[in-house]
Structure formats: C-alpha cells, structure tokens
Amino acid sequence: MPSPDPARRNENARRAVLDATLDLLQEVPYPRITIEGIASRAGVGKQTIYRWWASKAAVLFDAFLLLSARDGSDTPQLPDTGDLQADLTLVLRATVVELNDPRLSDPMRALATELAQDESLAEAYHRQLDAPLREAKRQRLREAQEAGQLADDLDLDVAIDIIWGPILNRWLQRSGPLSDEYVDALLRTALRGMRP
C-alpha cells in the first residue's frame, strides 16, 4: 500500500480552508468570521491556518485568488470586435453583474476593506490581480487608439480610470444603482471625450 502524499494532503487542506472561507462569507459578515470558525468549517486545526497565512485577511485574499481562478482566466483579455463601445459595454455590463451578485460582492467588499488597511496585501492584490487586468484594458484601448477610434494623445491609464473608476466607486460607496443604463450613460459620456 503506497504511503500518503503529504503535498496532496496539504493541498486538500489548503483548498478546504479557502472554500470554507468563501462559504462563511455567504453566511456571516466578514468582521465576525474568525480563524477558529474557518478552521472548524474546513476540518483543520487552527495551527494549520496560521502555518500558511499570517492573518484572516491573507486567507481572504487567497480565497479571492481561488475564486478568480475558477472562472478559467489565466491571462485576462478584453473582447475586440472592432467596435470599442460595444466591447466595453459587454465588459462593463458583466462587471456590474458580478458586483451585484451577493455571492461575489460580499467577498469583494471584504477584500476592498482589507486592502485599504493592509499595504502589503494591497501590493499583492495589485501585482497578482489588478495589474494583469489593467494591462488587458490598456491593450484593448491601445488597439482602439491605433485604429483611430481614440485620440492619439490619450493617456490610456487615465482613460482606464475614467471608464472603470465610476462603476467601482458607485459600488463601493453604494451611492447609486449599478445597471445597464448606467453603463451605457457612462460609456457615452466617457468615450465622447476620448475620441479624436
């Protein structure tokens, strides 16, 4: 009989912890989640969690990475049909669906709270999640610029902030509804100022 593979057992325990964290976020507000509660739900000892993660926020971040990996997107890429406004409408409407989904919005809100307070966690988030996605956005806008759909002197990083920022701001501050109508109005307004 072959001996058990410790690496496999560790990966199973790690996944159990991350899945337990995501499950608990559907049942309990993030501030009330504890390492003990995660350990109990995952069927592991508290010391196992502390061996792999420095804090509850670090567990949440890895759980969020797992959630992101489940959608199958290794290298993010925005659609390019040749119609920038249609492509951005598709992407932003999908973003709104995610932000409005309580199964995703609760973990994302918890992560946003932790990022605002933990500089090293914010750096890891930007390096592992935000930077690749931002590069995909920049690439799509660059292609539109090369096709003459956006002004030659447009600062693409500022354009990204102008297009995506209002949606995230409205969601984070709960300052108004996120809807297809809002996306359409946002894109009409933003792109009007970015065209040649």
Rank of each mutant, 00 (worst) to 15 (best):
4 P>T: 05
14 R>H: 13
144 A>N: 07
134 R>C: 08
37 G>A: 04
180 D>P: 01
48 T>R: 03
71 D>M: 10
75 T>R: 13
92 L>P: 04
54 A>R: 15
154 L>Y: 00
80 D>A: 14
39 A>N: 00
83 D>A: 11
166 P>H: 08
18 L>E: 02
46 K>D: 05
105 S>Q: 09
97 V>S: 08
30 Y>G: 01
102 P>Q: 00
189 T>H: 10
33 I>P: 01
189 T>Q: 13
122 A>N: 08
59 V>Y: 09
159 A>V: 07
116 A>V: 03
14 R>C: 01
41 R>M: 03
130 D>F: 15
77 Q>A: 15
51 R>N: 09
166 P>V: 09
81 T>C: 05
106 D>R: 14
196 P>C: 05
46 K>E: 15
109 R>P: 00
131 A>F: 06
113 T>D: 14
54 A>E: 15
79 P>R: 12
114 E>D: 12
101 D>H: 12
16 A>L: 00
50 Y>V: 09
6 P>K: 04
25 L>S: 06
190 A>E: 07
51 R>D: 04
8 R>A: 14
63 A>C: 04
153 D>G: 01
56 K>D: 07
142 R>P: 00
165 G>A: 10
11 E>P: 00
119 E>C: 00
2 P>C: 01
29 P>M: 03
73 S>A: 14
174 R>T: 08
171 W>S: 09
120 S>W: 04
143 E>L: 12
145 Q>W: 02
191 L>T: 03
62 D>V: 05
14 R>A: 13
180 D>G: 09
138 R>H: 14
41 R>F: 00
160 I>L: 01
132 P>Y: 09
4 P>E: 08
167 I>K: 02
94 A>F: 02
132 P>C: 08
172 L>M: 09
48 T>M: 04
132 P>V: 10
161 D>Y: 06
114 E>H: 07
163 I>E: 00
130 D>S: 12
78 L>M: 15
128 Q>S: 09
12 N>S: 14
152 D>S: 14
194 M>N: 03
196 P>S: 07
65 L>A: 03
12 N>M: 07
77 Q>H: 12
49 I>H: 04
186 L>C: 05
123 E>G: 02
104 L>Q: 15
149 Q>M: 05
50 Y>D: 06
161 D>H: 02
59 V>D: 08
105 S>K: 02
93 R>H: 09
27 E>W: 00
87 D>C: 07
27 E>D: 11
116 A>H: 03
163 I>G: 01
110 A>C: 01
35 I>Y: 06
102 P>N: 05
61 F>I: 10
96 V>Y: 04
112 A>W: 10
52 W>L: 10
39 A>T: 02
17 V>H: 02
101 D>E: 14
133 L>E: 08
83 D>L: 01
140 R>M: 13
60 L>W: 13
123 E>K: 11
81 T>W: 07
161 D>I: 00
16 A>T: 02
196 P>F: 08
173 Q>N: 10
35 I>T: 14
112 A>V: 03
72 G>P: 03
91 V>S: 09
17 V>A: 05
114 E>T: 11
165 G>E: 10
45 G>D: 11
7 A>K: 09
4 P>V: 08
149 Q>E: 15
52 W>A: 04
2 P>W: 08
37 G>C: 04
155 D>Y: 01
109 R>D: 05
70 R>W: 07
66 L>R: 13
112 A>D: 11
39 A>Y: 03
91 V>F: 08
